[in-house]
Amino acid sequence: MRKKLFLAEDDELLAALLSYRLEKGGYDVTLCQDGKQMKEHLAHGIPDIIVSDIMMPYFSGMELIGFVRSELKSNVPIIIISSAGNEENVLDAFELGANDFISKPVSPSELMVRAARELNKA
Protein backbone atom coordinates (compact mmCIF):
# COMPACT_ATOMS: atom_id res chain seq x y z
CA MET A 1 0.00 0.00 0.00
CA ARG A 2 1.29 3.44 -0.93
CA LYS A 3 2.08 5.74 1.93
CA LYS A 4 0.37 9.08 2.08
CA LEU A 5 2.76 12.05 2.06
CA PHE A 6 1.94 15.73 2.30
CA LEU A 7 4.56 17.96 0.70
CA ALA A 8 4.53 21.72 1.34
CA GLU A 9 6.93 23.68 -0.83
CA ASP A 10 6.39 27.12 -2.34
CA ASP A 11 8.96 26.67 -5.12
CA GLU A 12 6.83 25.09 -7.80
CA LEU A 13 9.69 23.65 -9.79
CA LEU A 14 11.29 21.99 -6.82
CA ALA A 15 7.92 20.82 -5.53
CA ALA A 16 7.10 19.22 -8.87
CA LEU A 17 10.48 17.55 -9.03
CA LEU A 18 10.30 16.19 -5.49
CA SER A 19 6.74 15.16 -5.95
CA TYR A 20 7.63 13.21 -9.09
CA ARG A 21 10.49 11.50 -7.36
CA LEU A 22 8.47 10.63 -4.27
CA GLU A 23 5.61 9.31 -6.32
CA LYS A 24 8.03 7.24 -8.28
CA GLY A 25 9.37 6.01 -4.95
CA GLY A 26 5.98 4.70 -3.94
CA TYR A 27 4.34 7.59 -2.13
CA ASP A 28 0.97 9.07 -2.63
CA VAL A 29 1.95 12.73 -2.65
CA THR A 30 -0.36 15.62 -1.95
CA LEU A 31 1.31 18.84 -3.03
CA CYS A 32 0.66 22.06 -1.14
CA GLN A 33 2.02 25.45 -2.14
CA ASP A 34 2.13 26.80 1.40
CA GLY A 35 1.39 25.96 5.01
CA LYS A 36 -2.11 27.31 4.78
CA GLN A 37 -3.02 24.85 2.05
CA MET A 38 -1.43 22.07 4.01
CA LYS A 39 -3.50 23.04 7.03
CA GLU A 40 -6.65 22.72 4.94
CA HIS A 41 -5.60 19.29 3.77
CA LEU A 42 -4.78 18.24 7.31
CA ALA A 43 -8.31 19.08 8.32
CA HIS A 44 -9.48 16.28 6.06
CA GLY A 45 -7.06 13.73 7.30
CA ILE A 46 -3.58 13.17 8.63
CA PRO A 47 -1.03 11.62 6.27
CA ASP A 48 1.65 9.04 7.07
CA ILE A 49 4.41 11.63 6.79
CA ILE A 50 4.76 15.36 6.22
CA VAL A 51 7.56 17.04 4.33
CA SER A 52 7.56 20.81 4.63
CA ASP A 53 9.70 23.77 3.78
CA ILE A 54 10.32 26.18 6.66
CA MET A 55 10.09 29.46 4.81
CA MET A 56 6.68 29.67 3.21
CA PRO A 57 4.12 32.41 2.74
CA TYR A 58 1.02 32.78 4.95
CA PHE A 59 1.75 29.86 7.24
CA SER A 60 5.35 28.92 7.78
CA GLY A 61 6.77 25.47 8.35
CA MET A 62 7.31 26.32 12.01
CA GLU A 63 3.70 27.26 12.48
CA LEU A 64 2.70 24.10 10.70
CA ILE A 65 4.72 21.93 13.10
CA GLY A 66 3.16 23.76 16.05
CA PHE A 67 -0.28 23.25 14.57
CA VAL A 68 0.23 19.51 14.01
CA ARG A 69 1.77 18.86 17.40
CA SER A 70 -0.28 21.21 19.58
CA GLU A 71 -3.66 21.43 17.95
CA LEU A 72 -3.96 18.19 16.06
CA LYS A 73 -2.04 16.35 18.79
CA SER A 74 -0.56 14.16 16.07
CA ASN A 75 2.76 12.36 16.14
CA VAL A 76 2.99 12.10 12.38
CA PRO A 77 6.65 12.25 11.28
CA ILE A 78 7.60 15.67 9.99
CA ILE A 79 10.66 16.28 7.83
CA ILE A 80 11.55 19.90 7.31
CA ILE A 81 13.39 21.40 4.38
CA SER A 82 15.53 24.37 5.32
CA SER A 83 17.78 26.70 3.41
CA ALA A 84 21.47 26.54 4.10
CA GLY A 85 22.45 28.81 6.97
CA ASN A 86 19.13 28.50 8.77
CA GLU A 87 20.51 26.39 11.58
CA GLU A 88 18.68 28.37 14.22
CA ASN A 89 15.37 27.67 12.53
CA VAL A 90 16.20 24.00 12.39
CA LEU A 91 16.86 23.93 16.12
CA ASP A 92 13.58 25.69 16.77
CA ALA A 93 11.83 23.23 14.50
CA PHE A 94 13.27 20.32 16.43
CA GLU A 95 12.12 21.89 19.67
CA LEU A 96 8.64 22.24 18.25
CA GLY A 97 8.59 18.57 17.32
CA ALA A 98 10.12 18.07 13.87
CA ASN A 99 11.60 14.65 13.36
CA ASP A 100 14.25 15.30 10.76
CA PHE A 101 15.53 17.95 8.44
CA ILE A 102 17.09 18.17 5.04
CA SER A 103 18.82 21.28 3.76
CA LYS A 104 18.61 22.91 0.37
CA PRO A 105 19.78 22.16 -2.25
CA VAL A 106 17.74 19.04 -1.75
CA SER A 107 18.79 15.68 -2.98
CA PRO A 108 15.55 13.85 -3.89
CA SER A 109 17.19 10.51 -3.27
CA GLU A 110 18.27 11.60 0.20
CA LEU A 111 14.76 12.76 0.96
CA MET A 112 13.46 9.39 -0.05
CA VAL A 113 15.82 7.64 2.31
CA ARG A 114 15.00 9.96 5.21
CA ALA A 115 11.28 9.61 4.65
CA ALA A 116 11.56 5.84 4.57
CA ARG A 117 13.59 5.88 7.77
CA GLU A 118 11.05 8.04 9.60
CA LEU A 119 8.25 5.79 8.50
CA ASN A 120 10.13 2.77 9.69
CA LYS A 121 10.62 4.42 13.08
CA ALA A 122 6.95 5.16 13.32
Partner: peptide, 15 residues
Protein backbone atom coordinates in the same frame (compact mmCIF):
# COMPACT_ATOMS: atom_id res chain seq x y z
CA UNK B 1 16.20 29.03 -17.28
CA UNK B 2 14.22 26.21 -15.67
CA UNK B 3 17.21 23.90 -15.55
CA UNK B 4 19.44 26.62 -14.13
CA UNK B 5 16.85 27.41 -11.50
CA UNK B 6 16.40 23.79 -10.57
CA UNK B 7 20.11 23.27 -10.38
CA UNK B 8 20.28 25.60 -7.39
CA UNK B 9 17.61 23.68 -5.50
CA UNK B 10 18.72 20.13 -6.07
CA UNK B 11 21.88 18.35 -5.17
CA UNK B 12 23.45 14.95 -5.46
CA UNK B 13 22.46 12.65 -8.22
CA UNK B 14 19.59 14.80 -9.38
CA UNK B 15 21.93 17.73 -9.93
Amino acid sequence: EILLDLRKDVSGDAQ
